Every structure is written in C-alpha cells, then in structure tokens.
Simulated assay, not measured.
Amino acid sequence: MYTEDTWITTPVTAELLRGALDLERTEHGVLPHRLPAWARAQCADGQLAMAESQPSGVRLVFRTRATAVELETLPTKRVYTGAPPRPDGVYDLLVDGRLAGQASVPGGNTLTIDMAAGTAEQRPGPPGTLHFAGLPDGVKDVEIWLPHNETTELVALRTDAPVEPAPDRGRRVWLHHGSSISHGSDAASPTTTWPALAASLGGVELVNLGLGGSALLDPFTARTMRDTPADLISVKIGINLVNTDLMRLRAFAPAVHGFLDTIREGHPTTPLLVVSPILCPIHENTPGPSAPDLTALGAGRLRFRAAGDPAERASGKLTLGVIRDELARIVAQRAAQDPDLHHLDGRDLYGEADAAELPLPDRLHPDAATHRRIGERFAELAFTGDGAFR
C-alpha cells in the first residue's frame, strides 16, 4: 500500500490540461472553465454558468512512469426534484490512448433544481478521491477525462512517480460548438460523448464548446471561437434556439451571419462546418419553448414537451424544419465567397429511421447508444471521403 510519504503531489496547471480555455483558482484548488473569464462576465445566466463549468472534453494529460494515480476533486452534482437520482459522474483513464479504467467521486456539492418551480439551491459537500492502481510500468502518456456533466474542482493530483506535461502529438485541433447534445447529455462517460468519439476516430484533439442549453448564437461565444487556435471548426446550431424560444426568424439569419463573420475574423480559411439539428420529433414542426412534462415528472420520469403552437410559425417562431432550411440557404449563399465553409444536415447523423430504432428517451437528448451512432457517423461524414475535415 502507498503511504502519504510515497505520493508525489503535482500542482494542476494549464500545462497539464487540455480542452479548457481558462483555469480559476478556488478555495479548494482550481476550476477548469470552457469559456474565458471575460466571456463569462458578459452573461449572468445560471444555465450557461453551469454548462461551461462542466468540463466536457477537458482532460488531464501527462507523461509518467507512475503505476498508481490519485485525483482529489470537489464535484457539483445535480439533483432534479421529482426525478430519479442521477448517477455519479464518470472519470475515464486512458493509457497511451486506450481506456484503462473508470471511476467516480462520491459526495461533493449538490445543486437541487426544481424544474416545475424554476428554482435551484446549492448545498456544500466534501471533496472525494479516485484511485487508479496497477498501471503498466514504464514511461507512458496518461489522460484522465473529467466528467462531462459535473462541475469539477481539481484539488490534488498525486502519483507514485514524477509527472511532466505530455508532448504535443502534432494532431490537428478541432474546435466544436453546440448544445447539450454536443455537451454530452446522457452519454455514458466523457470519452463516449459523440464529439469525443468522433475526435478519437478522426485522430484530432478536441476542444468542446458544447454548452447545454446555451448554443444561442451568443456574440461572446463567437469571439471565444475566433480567438481559440484551431485547425478545424464546427458549429451545430438550432435546438436551443427553439427550446428557449429565444428569437424569431427575422433575427435568426443575421445572427447566424454575424456568428460566422466573427469566427472568420480569426480563422479566415479554416475548414468551418455548419451542422443543422438532428431529428427531434417534438420540435420538427412545433415551436418552443420546451417545457418539462409534469405528468411524467409526477411519475418519476424526466420528459419534455413542445409548448408552442404550430400556427405560430406564421409569425416567425422557429422550428427545427425552419432552421434547417435557413442554415442550408445561408451556407450556400456564403460558400460562393468562402470555399472552406461547409454544411451538414443533422438528420444525416440521426434521422427518422434512427428515431424509430433509438428514440430520444426524454424527447430531447440521445442516450449512450445514440451518442456512439452520431459520433461514428460524424467521423465518417466529416473526416473521410469528401468530408469537410478530410
């Protein structure tokens, strides 16, 4: 067994992290963020604050001879009033690129969300420690992917041999922005969200700006993408604009143009792929907002319904069908002057046949099997053949 004298404690610094754009020092340690501080200061929305602090795609990466690794963290876990308990977030351990272990940290802070009342309450809790032992001897690259769905403060990294930052493998960097589906909602683990799967299959380094409930064409997100180094860029736009009922058709097209214009200020010739929404039957022809199905919630199940009226499309309310048509039109218009701009219909990733076989369990979010399917299809359509990222 290892004693306190055996362990080497290494400070968690930006050099050991990938996928994070900012690192905040806290009372307990450091908190990775996926939006920089200046961007966070421009929006006081609690949903965005929760989403960007959940480290989807963020991983500790280091080189070491260690055969045992401990990571002490302080997670923040979500509890939805009336819904079944959520499982603890999963940490994936990779050794030289291969999955070598999984673990969870119990305890931590608790954020209780009452969707019916629209309230949230946070209660503090203690840190916890995960332990990986029996790693192969010899120098190796170790990655610890943080839970994609739990805000995670990093308290201490302990190993039984020294660590150093892993060398750059020279792989292309893929910067992706999308909704909770891109964030990884209901995926089984952080390396099995569809962007992480696609990145692995495509042999690229992922920076995931999938922000649950917050893919809303925010200017600060576009400026963040403009300023983030990347070799490949994609934006998946649509579902959050519908389920928040944020804007009408008149505002949508100029907002998309502005978002793309801002990205192009920093990446004028980078391959840029615009992806429309996957199939979501409740919002194909019915506008938002999305609302919790209180009947299902009363029975202990979390499901959503479309609270809009199809007749409201005449007044400019957005549906997924309207958004797909507009995105295809906008990309075709811009591509005449921008040959590195591409379009992908989200129904090629998940369409009607997929919905019949693998329906969205809560009517909005894919399950683990569907994440795998979407990731594999994206990799095939984007990284091979005539794909935008070939």
Rank of each mutant, 00 (worst) to 15 (best):
A68M: 10
D160K: 13
D367S: 15
V275W: 07
L344S: 04
P55R: 06
A14S: 15
P11H: 10
H176F: 07
V256R: 02
I239F: 11
G125Q: 07
G57D: 03
A388C: 10
D92Q: 11
P147R: 01
G387V: 04
P124C: 03
L206Q: 02
A100T: 14
D348S: 11
M247G: 10
A230C: 04
I144H: 06
A215F: 04
R59F: 08
S315M: 07
P87M: 03
E352C: 07
G46A: 13
I144L: 15
P124I: 02
T10Q: 09
H177N: 14
A83S: 13
G138L: 14
V242L: 08
P11M: 10
L135V: 12
A51P: 06
T119G: 00
L217I: 07
T67D: 12
T384K: 09
E312W: 11
S214L: 10
G321F: 01
G351Y: 08
R324Y: 11
A368Y: 06
F378G: 02
P292E: 09
V204K: 01
K77I: 08
H148C: 12
T6Q: 00
T295N: 12
A20R: 08
L318A: 07
P75A: 08
E164T: 11
D186A: 13
H131P: 06
A307P: 06
H283I: 03
F304P: 03
F132I: 08
L273M: 05
A199P: 08
P147V: 01
Q54W: 00
P310E: 06
T9E: 15
G288M: 08
A255N: 12
G300C: 07
L349G: 03
L211F: 14
L146H: 01
R59N: 01
V155C: 03
A51H: 09
T221K: 01
P361D: 09
T3W: 06
E357M: 10
F252R: 07
G89P: 13
S56K: 02
R264I: 09
D245Y: 11
N149R: 14
A187N: 00
N109R: 14
E326M: 13
I282G: 01
G108R: 01
V61T: 12
P271R: 02
A314M: 14
D45F: 12
L16N: 01
A161K: 07
A103S: 12
Y350R: 09
V79Q: 03
R250I: 03
R25V: 14
Y91F: 15
E380S: 09
